Simulated scan of single mutants.
Amino acid sequence: MDSYVQSRKFAGSSLLLARGGEEVFFHKTGLRDIASRASFERNTVARIYSMTKPVTSVAIMMLAERGLFHLDAPVSNFIPAFSNMQALVEGATSIDQTEACATPTLHQLMTHTAGLSYPFNPGVLAQAMDQQSLIFGPQQGVLETVVDQVAALPLAFAPGTRWEYSVSIDILGRVVEIVSGKSLSEFFRDEILGPLGMHETSFSVSPEQNARFASLYTPLAGDAMALNSASAGQETLRCVDHVTDSAFVDAQTYSGGGGLVGTIDDYMKFAEMLRGHGALGDVRLLSPKTMSFMMSNHLQGDIASMGPQSFAEQPMEGMGFGLGGAVVLNPALARCAGSVGDFSWGGMASTFFWVDHANDMSAVFFTQLSPSSSYPARAELKALVHAAM
């Protein structure tokens, strides 16, 4: 961690490790804001981006446990805009080259096999999404409106035929709103964040957190998320989002796929709930059976066998996908030390977490550098942790 700061790869970072429910290691280093020389502290507030996805997936499963829907239900049952879907034909070169296809199910949305995409992926659909800025940023309006814009576009492929990292969990965030009758922010607060004691985590940076909100940096010359046109800049730590003008200070769009900000201790509570088979102390969000179901591989094989054509920040060989995160099937094929069954995911700002039931361990790593594919920090971190045990 210190060497990454010294070589100007990361401005600062923090790591928290727990085994058997007890903290065994914490380290912080570097700066949360280079300009002011403010240090990266334990209570630094960071953008967790896609580490929001497991939280939304837990929300969906909490509603499923209440018998409010089943996972094979088509999403059009909840969002009519997804009726009468079209998918791009094989080899399509324009967005109008489509054919009729089935409507994605909730399960396909949860496993990124629904046919949706992200603007930073390659492909025709991603280009169309990029033109409309369909990335569910904090200031893109109410969730319902952005979801309907996504539904108006064709799918990249027929649901269930491939794996592609996508905004599908954002669509599920809207399902949570419709089924629960609450905004996603309210549901998270009342049903997940509040009960777990994650009081520093939300979609917006509070006034009290302003002084602790980390700046976001990139080594790229252009947009930190425009991966299709990415080119290295002369400055490895160029600031692209600061609290004085950050959209996260007052979020309007509740992105279940990437909208939460919070502290490392807060996210460790969520990771420990996963390690605890759905419970943290006396608080239970999901049954052990449901949690085991979520953390199992839901693909026919590994992600690589599903023909992915999307952005990847970790190997897809030897890695399956559960509900809300990746599952290690074969550490050798994944080319990284670990245990079979490790459940993990990361965020675009290079944050990362994993839960290892074999070693009774939870790990949470925070930093603020986009894109997360800039350096092999996650594989190096896992190797160091396993070497230390």
Rank of each mutant, 00 (worst) to 15 (best):
D2I: 10
V5W: 02
A11W: 12
G12R: 01
L16Q: 02
L17E: 05
G21D: 05
K28E: 12
L31C: 05
A35T: 12
R37K: 12
R42M: 07
R47G: 06
M51K: 01
M51T: 11
M51E: 06
P54L: 08
V55N: 05
S57K: 01
V58Y: 02
M62V: 14
E65D: 13
G67F: 01
G67R: 10
S76G: 09
F82C: 10
M85K: 14
A87M: 12
L88C: 11
L88E: 04
E90A: 14
I95G: 10
T98C: 15
T105A: 09
H107K: 14
Q108F: 09
T113M: 03
A114F: 14
F120E: 13
P122L: 15
G123R: 13
G123T: 05
L125H: 11
S133E: 13
L134R: 03
L134G: 02
P138A: 10
D148P: 00
Q149K: 11
A151W: 03
A156G: 10
A158G: 03
P159Q: 13
G160S: 04
G160M: 10
W163S: 08
D170R: 02
L172P: 01
E177F: 00
L184G: 05
S185A: 15
L193E: 01
P195Q: 03
P195N: 05
H199T: 03
E200C: 08
S202H: 06
F203C: 13
F203H: 05
S204G: 10
V205E: 00
P207F: 14
R212A: 11
R212Y: 00
A214K: 14
S215W: 15
L216E: 01
T218N: 07
P219T: 12
G222A: 13
M225G: 14
M225L: 15
A226L: 13
S231K: 15
Q234S: 15
E235K: 07
T236V: 03
T236Q: 12
R238V: 06
D241E: 15
D241F: 13
V243K: 07
T244L: 12
T244P: 02
T244R: 09
S246N: 08
A247Y: 07
A247L: 12
A251Q: 03
Q252G: 07
Q252H: 10
G259H: 01
L260F: 00
A271E: 06
A271K: 04
E272I: 09
R275A: 09
L280A: 09
D282M: 04
V283H: 01
L285I: 14
S287G: 13
T290F: 04
S296Y: 03
S296I: 02
G301N: 09
G301S: 12
I303T: 10
P308Q: 07
Q309C: 12
A312P: 02
E313A: 14
Q314W: 15
P315W: 01
M316T: 15
E317M: 05
G322Q: 05
L323P: 09
N330I: 02
L333Q: 14
A337Q: 13
G338M: 08
S339M: 11
T351C: 05
F353C: 08
D356Y: 11
H357E: 07
N359S: 12
N359L: 07
M361R: 11
S362C: 10
F365A: 02
S373I: 03
A377M: 14
K382M: 06
A388E: 08
